[in-house]
């Protein structure tokens, strides 16, 4: 469903991603872990064509993302939902209009249908009464959930989550992981999840990629990472710090 092949990206002459390759099968969730500054967010942006890589390609449903015309890229993006690390809510629109934005752009529904769908999605993220509020009036957890609602409302078959629980309290975090789980089990979406919360993604991800300094250090299934002897992967997985990070 998603394939990344030999991706390399330089930033001011320094490589930030080097020969990154992996695949995500349909209906599975890949956990992308690694220390801060390893290039995880950049990788997600390259996958959906927001950033051009210097070499290598990404494929979505077998279609090469790089070199697509703007129209085709737009078409492709209807199939991808992206939950941004810092929510990226439009701060001049209220919550309802934020969530409605992708639907209005798609232009397939009437205003009445859109408002109904927005209300349903607000109910599903447990925030039924905040439609009239603006993003700057919301707490971090609420913004994250609104961002989540906006990313998944067009029912895309692929959803990419960039650190969905960063800076949230444990209760809200577990709620968010429940949403992620429901997305996978009920809608069968394919996804990539960046997270530092190993406990949280242990159960919802099927395979894992550990990225360090722009390189794939580990790529394998849950069983494989549980039993790996690779010290960096063990540190990350079990939270040890017996050895210096990278």
């Amino acid at each position: 469903m998603i394939e990344v092949r030999d991706l390399t990206k330089y930033h001011f002459g320094r490589p930030v991603l080097e020969n990154v390759s992996f695949r995500v099968k349909e209906g599975t969730n890949l956990g992308l872990i690694g220390p801060g500054g390893a290039g995880k967010t950049l990788l997600l942006k390259i996958i959906c064509g927001l950033v051009e890589p210097d070499s290598g390609n990404t494929f979505i449903k077998g279609q090469k993302v790089q070199g697509l015309a703007l129209q085709e890229l737009t078409q492709l993006r209807f199939d991808i939902g992206l939950l941004f690390q810092n929510y990226a809510l439009f701060d001049y629109l209220n919550v309802t209009e934020n969530i409605a934005f992708p639907l209005r752009q798609a232009g397939k529904h009437t205003n009445k249908e859109i408002l109904k769908m927005v209300q349903e999605s607000l109910n599903s993220v447990d925030l039924p009464h905040i439609g009239h509020q603006y993003p700057n009036e919301l707490s971090g957890g609420m913004k994250k959930r609104v961002g989540f609602a906006r990313a998944v409302i067009p029912k895309p078959p692929i959803v990419l989550y960039d650190d969905p629980t960063a800076g949230l309290d444990p209760v809200t975090s577990s709620k968010i992981f429940l949403f992620l789980k429901a997305m996978k089990e009920e809608r069968g979406v394919t996804s990539i999840t960046i997270s530092h919360d190993i406990e949280g993604i242990r159960d919802i991800c099927d395979s894992f990629v550990l990225l360090n300094k722009g390189k794939v250090v580990f790529y394998g299934s849950r069983d494989e990472i549980e039993n790996t002897q690779l010290s960096l992967a063990r540190q990350f997985w079990h939270g040890f710090s017996d050895d210096e990070l990278g």
């Binding site: 993006r77 990226a88 809510l89 906006r150």
Partner: peptide, 9 residues
């Protein structure tokens, strides 16, 4: 927000 806009077509 600009990237989010692009993602929303």
């Amino acid at each position: 927000q600009v990237d989010a806009m692009k993602m929303c077509a």
